[in-house]
């Protein structure tokens, strides 16, 4: 078990009002899973994502990552966990504009105590893995959106994280580039990487093997992709859905 959330609550105070962003979430994720978290805005999926990424701490409940209880950790220890065990992919890439692709990919190693020596090799290897070996010395403004997201994915993978967290990774991309990025996620998943992705697009979600639906801070449905309604919807709308790609058959 790589992720183990037990009765996690997150309460924000907004004046006199208390907002339950997460209201008793239980969630277990095994190593090697590919999970999509879906829900409307305000459903708590972003809060869940921040919680899983150790960017935020629950008001109550426990979160075990890789068997380690993160709930009681200090800010510095959480930073270390983020550095070692979590890779983030954001909707708007979040690359350093003045750094080359390889420097951007190296960034997490700056904060890793033992990651300094082989950093170039590691960054090169990560870029190679996302198919951008020839763009190592380009800066973000010399690259297309899809290439930038690939750099971001390489950066997320460089420390060999336990989980890859992607927050609407295709939200800023056109459909063709989105498909390429999703193919890349599929390939990474095939290599055994645990992936958790937040999305509201059915097309995107059905690349995952498991769909977790959130509403009002609770998990309202947690099903294998074939059993979830996105599956039918996606195939219906795009005509290029997983049925045609033969996902079901496998």
């Amino acid at each position: 078990m790589i992720i183990r959330l037990r009765n996690v609550r997150k309460v924000y105070k907004m004046g006199a009002e208390r907002i339950h962003a997460l209201d008793g979430v239980h969630l277990d994720i095994e190593k090697g899973e590919y999970v999509a978290v879906m829900g409307h805005s305000g459903s708590g999926k972003s809060t869940l994502m921040n919680m899983l990424g150790c960017l935020d701490r629950p008001t109550s409940g426990t979160y075990e990552l890789d068997g380690q209880l993160t709930t009681r950790m200090s800010g510095g220890e959480l930073a270390r966990v983020r550095n070692r065990r979590i890779g983030f992919v954001f909707q708007s890439f979040e690359l350093m504009p003045r750094m080359t692709a390889v420097k951007n990919v190296e960034l997490p190693l700056v904060y890793a105590p033992d990651g300094w020596r082989g950093r170039h090799k590691m960054a090169r290897a990560a870029l190679d893995r996302v198919g951008l070996a020839d763009r190592a010395h380009h800066k973000p403004n010399q690259m297309s959106g899809g290439q930038r997201q690939r750099v971001a994915i390489a950066r997320a993978l460089i420390c060999r994280p336990s989980i890859l967290l992607a927050d609407e990774p295709t939200g800023n991309l056109d459909s063709k580039t989105s498909a390429e990025i999703l193919d890349l996620f599929d390939a990474i998943h095939k290599d055994g990487q645990t992936i958790i992705m937040v999305t509201h697009e059915a097309d995107v979600a059905c690349h995952a093997k498991r769909i977790v639906r959130m509403s009002d801070g609770r998990v309202v449905s947690d099903l294998p992709v074939e059993a979830d309604e996105v599956y039918a919807l996606a195939s219906y709308h795009s005509g290029e859905g997983p049925l045609e790609q033969g996902v079901v058959g496998q």
Binding site: R82, N83, R84, F88
Partner: peptide, 16 residues
């Protein structure tokens, strides 16, 4: 600010 946010997300401690 965003750069700082990203650095923290990839593991920069407050002291860093």
């Amino acid at each position: 600010t965003r750069e700082i946010g990203l650095r923290k997300a990839v593991g920069a401690k407050p002291s860093a």
